[in-house]
Computed example of a mutant assay.
Amino acid sequence: MADETKDGAAEAPKKSKKMLMIIVIAVVVLLGGGGGAYFMLKGDKAEAAKTPEKGAVTGIDDALTINLADSHYLKIKFALQQTAEAGTEEVDTSEAIELTIDAYTGKTVAELSTEKGREEIKSELLAKIVKAYTEEKKEMVMGIYYTQFVTQ
C-alpha cells in the first residue's frame, strides 16, 4: 500500500507540470498572435494614411511599339493615375513614355507572358515614374493602367 501511495503522489505533480506547461505555451502563443496582429493592423493604418488620394487619369494618345528580344515586339498603351495633389491639369506623358520604352526594350516574350513577369516590370516602371513625377516632395502620379498590351 505504501508503494501505491508513493506512485500516486509521484504522478500528480507530473500531470500538474504538464498542464502548467500547456497553459504557459498557450498563453505565449496567444500573446504572440495578439501582438503580431496589433503590429500588422497598425502598419495597415499607417500605410493607408500614406496612400495619396486618386486624382485625374491621363492617357497616352497613341500605342507604343517597342522592340523586344529575338525579333519580337510589344504594342503597349497606358494611362497614368495622378494624385489629387496634382490637380486637374494633365501631366506631360513624354517622360513616362521614355521610361516605358527603356523598361521594356530588350525584354523577352517569355518574361512578359507570365503575370509575375509583367507585374515585376510594371512595379519597377511605376517606381521610376513616381520618382520622375515627384515635384518638391509632392507625388504627381501614383499608378499605371495598361489599356493595351500585345506581344508578338
Rank of each mutant, 00 (worst) to 15 (best):
T5V: 15
D7T: 15
P13D: 03
P13K: 06
K15P: 00
S16H: 00
K17N: 13
K18D: 15
V28K: 02
L31T: 10
Y38M: 03
F39E: 10
M40T: 05
L41N: 15
L41H: 13
K42G: 06
G43Y: 02
A48L: 12
T51K: 10
A56L: 13
V57Y: 13
V57F: 12
G59P: 11
D61Y: 11
D61S: 15
A63N: 02
L64A: 08
T65M: 07
I66Y: 08
H72Q: 15
Y73M: 12
K75H: 06
F78V: 09
L80C: 06
Q82I: 04
Q82F: 10
A84Q: 14
A84G: 03
A86Y: 13
E90P: 08
V91C: 07
D92W: 01
A96W: 02
L99N: 04
T100Q: 07
Y104R: 00
G106H: 03
K107V: 10
A110R: 14
S113P: 09
E115V: 14
G117W: 02
E124W: 05
K128C: 01
V130K: 15
V130E: 13
A132G: 08
Y133G: 12
E135W: 00
E136C: 02
G143C: 04
G143M: 06
I144M: 05
Y146G: 09
T147G: 13
T151K: 04
